[in-house]
Design a protein around this nucleic acid. Structure first.
Lengths: 108, 108
DNA sequence: TCAATAGTTCAAGACTGCTGAACTATTGAT
DNA sequence: ATCAATAGTTCAGCAGTCTTGAACTATTGA
């Protein structure tokens, strides 16, 4: 918790890394929760329950480095939020259509 | 070349597997080429030049099993085509926005 | 100062992906 | 028919990645 988080500039975000980050069910679930809430969420809240903490950490790191989320420390916790506006500017419609599609597919 | 190809029904196609398939630069390139052409392309034409044949085979298999492409044998070659209409019905806008985004990002 | 909370880092086993080598199937020429 | 060429498949092994327990760090509140 010392090292500051590194977030790529939106123009350095690659489509492949975004798709890769979204291709994992756990990470897609996290993104859906972040998209659903109105404000940032800490890691444990956004991640599925009983996911080991080290695994949580790993997935948030992937999402952060892919440029999908922004993380900020607030005391002992980390507040994560989706970088939707920026991403939609760079890749118009991609995140939105994926989120929409994931809604439809969810019920199974 | 004996075993027939297996294509999942469009309703069995999962969003995750589609995103996963698209997250690889080589496969995204293949999809872009298939989307660009008006009719099906054989494997060697759709894949980047000097990609080992076994690797080509592997990527086409991933794309096929993810539900992104349809493959048919024509003599010694395999004609591949994008399942765009079906996919767009199941995941509206996903493929289209990804293809559009990949155009913009390409020039680098 | 101490315990509790929230998350990170590291290491190792399990799992995947890429590719060379060997193979099969089809076509076209002889 | 047979043979060579073409197009792609299958297999096996190395290399790289993912997940997770254990140990650690940082911050808060008592």
């Amino acid at each position: 918790m010392q090292r500051p988080f590194v977030h790529p500039a939106v123009d350095d975000v690659s489509l492949e890394s975004v798709l890769y980050a979204l291709a994992d069910p756990t990470r897609l679930e996290i993104i859906k929760r972040l998209a659903g809430g109105t404000c940032g969420m800490n890691c444990s809240t956004a991640a599925p329950a009983d996911l080991p903490k080290s695994t949580q950490s790993h997935h948030f790191q992937v999402l952060r480095e892919a440029g999908l989320i922004r993380s900020e420390r607030r005391g002992t916790e980390v507040v994560n939020s989706l970088r939707c506006a920026e991403l939609d500017k760079r890749f118009p419609g991609v995140i939105a259509s994926v989120l929409k599609a994931s809604e439809k597919t969810k019920k199974k």
